[in-house]
């Protein structure tokens, strides 16, 4: 009996490991190619795990003309502003709808649900004209403002806040606290898991955002990572080794960050699956 359990566990591990290697393959390929100097003329064939002509040359070439630090800085500013904004706006709106009573509440709730059905891609052209008109074209605010009110985040917040007992709030109301204070000091601390989940999700959605920044930005000094690398690819597409070095610096730090906070990411993602 014990032997069969051991066997079962062992074979499950083997299957998972094989799948894991397949998942890691693109990353391994990227790393290995990025260290091959000849890869700037043609891809190494047959593929080599550690290239025969191992060198850091591609990284030197790439760092000279690819402002990866600047792009990280830009992505960081934009994404953290979005995440901060989403958390604040979703908390406020979520609290009002979950716990407040006012005329039009149901209508506003429906409106928020409806915005979830609008794919961002279809409003890009009008949004672009709007940004030109209000002079926000080619600014970071153009990337931040349109995604700061997020229907899905508000919805998740409402669902979560509804589960907080009203008695807690009533007690505070009797003590004379105003609603903002109640939300800030009593409700939000209880919402820690959902806040963390929303932070993670909005980070993921916005860090890799591509189409809108591609259209809304012009100044290379404001480019985010996906746009930066897409433009770099236009110039260096034939140089596989250098491109792979650029790809490496564009994703590895994010992957490391993910590994460090993976527990929160997993919890956040799981929460969304269970809440709807």
């Amino acid at each position: 009996m014990r032997k069969s359990i051991l066997l079962k566990q062992g074979s499950m591990g083997a299957v998972l490991a094989v799948i894991g290697v397949i998942f890691l393959l693109p990353f391994i390929y990227m790393l290995s190619t990025s260290f091959s100097r000849q890869a700037n003329i043609a891809l190494p064939y047959p593929p080599q795990l550690i290239p025969e002509d191992f060198s850091f040359f591609n990284y030197i070439v790439m760092l000279k003309s690819f402002s990866v630090g600047l792009y990280y800085f830009n992505s960081g500013i934009v994404t953290s502003s979005v995440v901060g904004g989403v958390l604040l706006i979703s908390s406020l709106a979520g609290y009002a709808i979950a716990k407040g009573s006012f005329r039009g509440k149901y209508f506003i709730f429906l409106l928020i649900l409806a915005t979830m059905m609008v794919p961002f891609q279809i409003i890009i052209v009008p949004l672009y004209i709007l940004m030109l008109k209000i002079k926000l074209y080619d600014t970071r605010l153009a990337l931040i403002l349109p995604v700061m009110a997020n229907g899905y985040s508000i919805f998740l917040m409402i669902q979560y806040m509804k589960s907080i007992p009203d008695e807690l709030l009533d007690a505070a109301r009797i003590d004379g606290c105003n609603e903002f204070k109640i939300m800030w000091q009593i409700v939000l601390p209880l919402c820690k898991p959902v806040l963390a989940a929303l932070a993670v999700l909005n980070f993921l959605w916005n860090w890799n955002s591509f189409l809108w920044p591609l259209i809304a930005l012009e100044d290379m000094n404001k480019f985010t990572i996906p746009i930066g690398i897409a433009f770099y690819q236009q110039q260096f597409t034939a140089y596989y080794g250098t491109m792979m070095a650029a790809a490496t610096v564009a994703i590895i730090p994010v992957l490391i960050l993910f590994v460090l906070v993976q527990r929160y990411v997993v919890r956040g993602i799981a929460l969304t699956g269970l809440k709807l």
């Binding site: 700037n40 591609n58 070439v61 000279k64 003309s65 110039q235 140089y239 250098t242």
Partner: peptide
Amino acid sequence: QMEDWIDPV
């Protein structure tokens, strides 16, 4: 090409 660059080959 705005930035200084190195020919990858």
